[in-house]
Amino acid sequence: MSLESISEGRGKKLNILVCVKQVPDTKIIKVNPKTNTLDRSSAPAILNPYDAHAVQEAVRLKEIHGGKVTVLSMGPPQAKEAIKKCVEIGADEGFLISDRRFAGADTLATSYALYKAVQKLMKQDGGIDLILCGKHAIDGDTGQTGPGIARRLLIPPLTNVIKVAEVNLEDRKIQVHRKIEDGYELIESAIPCLLTVEKEINEVEYSPLPNMLKAARYTPIVWTVDDLEDVDIKQLGLKGSPTIVGKMWPPAKSEGAQILAGDSREQVREAVSIMLQQRELFKVKGGERV
């Protein structure tokens, strides 16, 4: 797969593919501290928040440069809801690859499946100039899928993007701000490339009513493994995943806190005197009184 073939034959428009994942709302997943079990039933599935920003950015870029925003997701049939959410934000169409054979994929197998779907999408009218992903999915926080897809497509991954500074369709170049620990770097890349975005990149806008109506009526296109081409089944799903979960355990409990006795004021007094044992922390000037 050569780089050019991804975006072959197009000139002045920006066709963007956004990879999105449906995740359990981890803000709502609650753990029962007594039993150490998760209450998954209570957590509704949502569009990965970072991916919402990615879609929003794609829509923004489309408004400036023209083109099309397509979303792609791998997941169970319910993930259609996440795709519809993207249509609310302004995506033009969405594809879901859904098949038991994809199930149990780690990031390597996920990026393989998505890569195969991207290849098929590239052949559709217009091709793809830019791929956007979220910085990470909040259920696993790995952030490995995006760079994985990029490597398979042999296009540069630009991770942790906080701003798209410039898109030059003439020279087929893009400049972005990439967040690093102590600031950001301004990096230029040839198009096509893949960006993973941080939340700072934009505010997800309140969707206009026509988008809502469109999304309500929209049915994402669903592909199974058989709809993709040249798929090596051994690289899919659980079978294609080099990593497996070994054991799981609740973290070791220490003997636990000594709960201070008495009413609030008594507890506080006790706490203060304990803190003052670490007196050097609150050392007086000159340090002579320790």
Binding site: D106, T107, L108, S111, G140, D141, T142, G143, Q144, T145, G146, P147, G148, A150, R151, R152, P157, T159, N160, R178, K179, I180, E181, S241, P242, T243
Partner: peptide, 23 residues
């Protein structure tokens, strides 16, 4: 697990086709 460390590890994992555990 810095920005660059994570970026590199993800790319290398795909490059040499192996497993990578995050964070």
């Amino acid at each position: 697990a810095t920005s660059n460390g994570k970026d590199l590890a993800s790319a290398v994992a795909t490059e040499v086709m192996t497993g990578l555990t995050a964070d």
